[in-house]
Structures are given as C-alpha cells and as structure tokens.
Write a protein that binds this DNA or RNA. Structure first.
Length: 373
DNA sequence: AAGGCGGGGTG
DNA sequence: CACCCAGCCTT
C-alpha cells in the first residue's frame, strides 16, 4: 500500500463505453442542478463574451473576475469595439486584475479577428489557437461553450478531476501526464452538450473536487472515482513545485506639483508592462536604497526636489517576487514638467484622472501610503 | 523544460 | 507561511 503501489498501475486513458455514458449523464445532471449563475454564462452563445471571460480567468479566480468582466463587457461589448479601442483605456479597465499581458493579447486578438476573420470569432479550435493569448485550453473552451464544437479542455480544475477519476498520481506538469489528461478529456467529452459537460468538469473542480479535503460524498462521480476507491484523494494530484520567491527592492519618487503627481508609463514588456507608475529605480544587489535614490535623482527633470532620506516603505508579495518600495517624496516646479522620462511617456495626473490610467495594486498601495489617495 | 507574469483566497 | 487559481508565451 502507499505511494509505491500507485506507480505500479498502468495509467488508463479511457473507460468502457457504458461507464463513459454514466459519467456524462451524472455529470450533466449534476450541472443542471448546481451550475453557477455567472455573467458570461448568460451570454453563452456570444463567443466574444466567452473569449473575454476565458482570458480574464487565466490563473485568476472566478470571484475576482466577475466585476472586471461586468465593466469590460459594458464598455467594450463587441469585438469591433475592443479592436478600435486605445490600449491605455483597456489597461485602465484591467487595472488590478494582474497578468497585464493578457489585456494586450486580448486587444491583439480582437484586431486579428477583425483583420483575418471578418470580425467574427472563429469556430474551430485550430483557428482559435491562431489568436494571440489563446492556447489549447482557451480555444477548446470557446469552441465548446459558444459553438457547441466537440472539443476537450484541461485546465487546473479539470486536471485535478481527471487525475483523481483515474487515480493518476503522476506529476501533472510533465508532458507525459499532460498527454494522458488531454486524452481522457477527449475520450469523455460528449457530442451533445459538450460545452455544458466541459463547464461541469470545471465546476466540479471548483467544488466539491477541491485541492485539499474534497467533499467526495457531494460528488456525482464518486462511484467512478478511482482515487476515492483507493483512498488517494489527498495525494492526487501531487502538489506542484513552485518557483522560489526572490526578493527585490526599488526606490520610488513621489513628485507633487500642487495636487498632481508625476506618472511614467512602464515599458510594454515585463512586469506591469504598459502600466503607469511613479518614477522608479531598482536597487541593485549589494546596494543601498540611497545609492539607487541617487541614480533616480539624476533621471528626474531639472528642478525636481527629492528628499534625501525616507522611512516610507511599501511591501508587496507577488507569486514569484517579494518587492519592497522605498518611497522618496518631493516636488516639481513649473519649469520641470516633462512629457517623457528616459523615452517613456510621462504626465502629471490629478486624482480625478487616475481612473484613466492603468496602474498596479502596488502603485495604488504607494499612493495610499503617501496620503494622496 | 523552465521561468516570467499579479493578485487574491484559504487554511 | 504554503498552496491554489477557467494558462500562455518566451527562451
């Protein structure tokens, strides 16, 4: 018994036809009773709404996405509306949601749909996958939910459900196990109601088939779950190895001109790409914030006054980084208001205009800390 | 194959 | 803290 036994199992990819039918029937019946009422499900046949929701849902929880989706779909109700929008306004609406590259990819996808697909979201998985930001999962989700195309999907939730259903204790991050999971999803997805079936699999992973302490008696698939039968639900799937969290420090210049603050737009690539922020300068390894502050000072407009010391610290924890901001306050006189800093667009902004700028939670925390918000 | 990319929820 | 989340892209 135990881990050694798990690996002696040949990993099945299919079940017999009768079992497959029973699994589909039970799962769909469960979905009919327990499906969550989500805003994008009310537009189930609108492929643009599904595409938008799926992009927002990447690595992001449903409850977090809902208010963002609601604002976004009102402001940009169609592919055409989004395609012709300004990226700054898109990022402003995306502010706080994270993974900001998604917003840029979504914009690019909308423009490609207009340019290459006559403004209509394509129906096939292969065509969908040509869109920026759309991989196998998202393509399958949009195709099956919006167009009722029989396509499998495997995301984090479905991965867990299928790994348990087949008692597959392999590491889901490996290509071999990934292939098995997709093969199982492919074999199970029905021809009719495939979109509902896929959403049911995801809902099941949301509850009751949660990562820790799943509520198996509430699961419609318990009679068919191999992990349940073997008492392995707490070990399947194995926990994912995580990248180590590294620490980083940056200095920040909070420069006021009256009630306004100086903002700079970050480069499109990398962390918080394309968002606006207060001017920053990274603190190198084996360097003090004071050293970085001196470099920061040199980049600022002539006539800017910047404090030489600060006690203001703001800490933020990202998934892969722990960042400490050392915030130096200062002032700009009327002769030192730039439109660019090191080639990046710069502008003064009043509180009332902040909603027009895409900014990160970290930046917002800094603005709050200095008493500006 | 591995790392980068945000932010929030939960125990 | 640890671990997770309706992934994808780059190197």
């Amino acid at each position: 018994m135990g881990v050694s036994k798990i690996h002696t199992h040949a990993q099945r990819v299919t079940v017999d036809a009768a079992t497959a039918r029973a699994i589909r029937r039970r799962l769909l019946a469960w979905f009919d009773r327990h499906a969550r009422d989500l805003p994008w499900r009310r537009r189930g046949s609108d492929p643009y709404a599904q595409l938008l929701a799926e992009l927002m849902l990447h690595q992001t929880q449903v409850a977090t996405v809902i208010p963002y989706y609601e604002r976004f779909i009102v402001r940009f109700p169609t592919v055409a509306a989004l395609a012709s929008a300004d990226i700054d306004e898109i990022l402003a609406l995306w502010s706080g949601l994270g993974y900001y590259r998604r917003a840029r990819l979504l914009h690019a996808a909308a423009r490609k749909i207009v340019a290459d697909f006559q403004g209509q979201v394509p129906r096939s998985v292969d065509a969908l996958m040509t869109l920026p930001g759309v991989g196998r999962y998202t393509a399958g989700a949009v195709a099956s939910i919006a167009f009722d195309v029989r396509a499998p999907i495997v995301d984090g939730n479905v991965m867990r459900v299928l790994a348990r259903l087949f008692a597959d204790a392999g590491d889901p991050s490996t290509p071999e196990v990934q292939r098995r999971l997709w093969a199982r999803a492919e074999a199970l997805v029905p021809r009719r109601r495939c979109g509902a079936f896929n959403q049911a699999l995801m809902d099941l992973g949301g509850s009751p088939c949660v990562p820790v302490a799943p509520d198996c008696p509430a699961c419609p698939l318990m009679p068919y779950c191999a992990a349940w039968a073997e008492g392995l639900t707490d070990r399947i799937p194995p926990a994912r190895r995580r990248a180590k969290v590294r620490t980083a420090a940056v200095t920040v210049a909070a420069l006021r001109r009256g009630e306004r603050l100086l903002f700079v737009r970050r480069a499109d690539d990398g962390l918080w790409g394309g968002l606006w922020e207060l001017p920053t300068e990274p603190v190198g390894e084996s360097e003090s914030p004071t050293d970085a502050r001196a470099r920061l000072r040199k980049r600022l407009p002539v006539g800017a006054r910047l404090a030489t010391a600060t006690d203001l610290r703001v800490k933020r924890l990202l998934s892969h980084r722990r960042v400490t901001f050392h915030v130096y306050e200062g002032r700009l006189n009327s002769h030192s208001i730039p439109s660019a800093l090191d080639g990046q667009p710069a502008r003064l902004a009043a509180r009332e205009k902040l909603a027009e700028l895409g900014i990160s939670r970290a930046c917002k925390a800094i603005l709050t800390r200095i008493g500006w918000l």
